[in-house]
């Protein structure tokens, strides 16, 4: 009954798999070590410099609450920038998202051209856009708004064209069959299908714009980021921590409200 087997499997994986995994591990570790040596940054430094971290964090406390009154105007400027930029970006992105959806723009040349243009727009980081516009229009909120518009259009068009590409095309056939023209087909058969997602994405882009406009301030593109940058340069750390706390609270509140609104839409 107990016929003894002459072959005992050596491991749970074949030899070849083990070899490949071992080699991959060696390669990853060597690249890691090479990168660390070349940049002279070792993760162990974090633990060596922990006292420094505590020292700096200590400078931030206690927050300077008397500074709050200087924060409000700039905070509202940030929100205004996000509102203006989002509104304009939403309007601009409607035609562009239709042009980058392959079920609406059936002409391959136009479709590929529009996609190419929007891919280029998306590869430019928001901070670079801000640097460029500050160079063109000078320091201030206007440059920030311009940068945010382009940044937001890039995101919105990408998200929206993908939604448009997944819609049910049968109703568009019915509208065309009853003699409707292109714009009528879009407004009667396509817009109703994508409107909830479109509003939802617009709110989402508004959230992103609020956060992005903080960073843009660092290069002089208006809003509360500019104030933050100034106080960091003056090493006025208690004021910096006041700004950070207020921004944190405001961003959380806006994200919460917008999240609730979006939840109700879909």
């Amino acid at each position: 009954m107990n016929k003894s087997s002459s072959y005992v499997p050596k491991g749970l994986y074949p030899f070849k798999t083990k070899l490949i995994i071992s080699l991959a591990l060696i390669v990853v570790i060597s690249f890691y070590l090479l990168s660390s040596i070349k940049t002279e940054s070792f993760i162990i430094d974090f633990f060596m410099k922990v006292p420094n971290v505590f020292g700096l964090v200590g400078d931030f406390f206690p927050p300077d609450w008397s500074y709050v009154n200087q924060v409000w105007p700039k905070l509202f400027e940030t929100i205004h920038m996000a509102i203006i930029a989002t509104t304009i970006a939403v309007i601009i992105s409607i035609p562009f998202s239709l042009l980058t959806a392959n079920n609406v723009t059936t002409n391959t040349w136009i479709y590929q051209l529009m996609r190419f243009l929007l891919n280029i727009v998306r590869t430019v980081p928001d901070i670079i856009l801000a640097v460029v516009f500050v160079g063109l229009f000078g320091i201030g909120a206007f440059s920030g708004i311009m940068a945010l518009i382009i940044f937001a259009v890039g995101i919105l068009v990408k998200l929206m064209s993908e939604v448009i590409e997944t819609i049910d095309m049968n109703p568009t056939e019915a509208i065309r069959a009853s003699g409707g023209n292109g714009l009528q087909t879009i407004s009667f058969a396509i817009i109703p299908q994508v409107l909830p997602q479109f509003i939802s994405f617009s709110l989402y882009v508004f959230e992103i714009n609020i956060r992005a406009s903080l960073v843009l301030g660092l290069v002089g593109a208006g809003g509360i980021g500019q104030l933050l940058n100034k106080e960091i340069n003056f090493m006025n750390y208690p004021a910096v921590s006041t700004i950070i706390i207020i921004v944190f609270i405001v961003v959380v509140i806006i994200d919460y409200i917008s999240g609730k609104l979006r939840g109700g839409l879909i």
Binding site: P171, E173, A174, S187, F188
Partner: peptide, 27 residues
């Protein structure tokens, strides 16, 4: 059926008039 599912019944029915209605008005 090819109705626009998210639109109301009346909006679906009146879309039969699109061929007789100007683009701007219908939008």
């Amino acid at each position: 059926y090819n109705l626009v599912k998210r639109s109301t019944v009346i909006k679906n029915v009146i879309s039969g008039r699109l061929g007789y209605t100007g683009t701007f008005k219908s939008i």
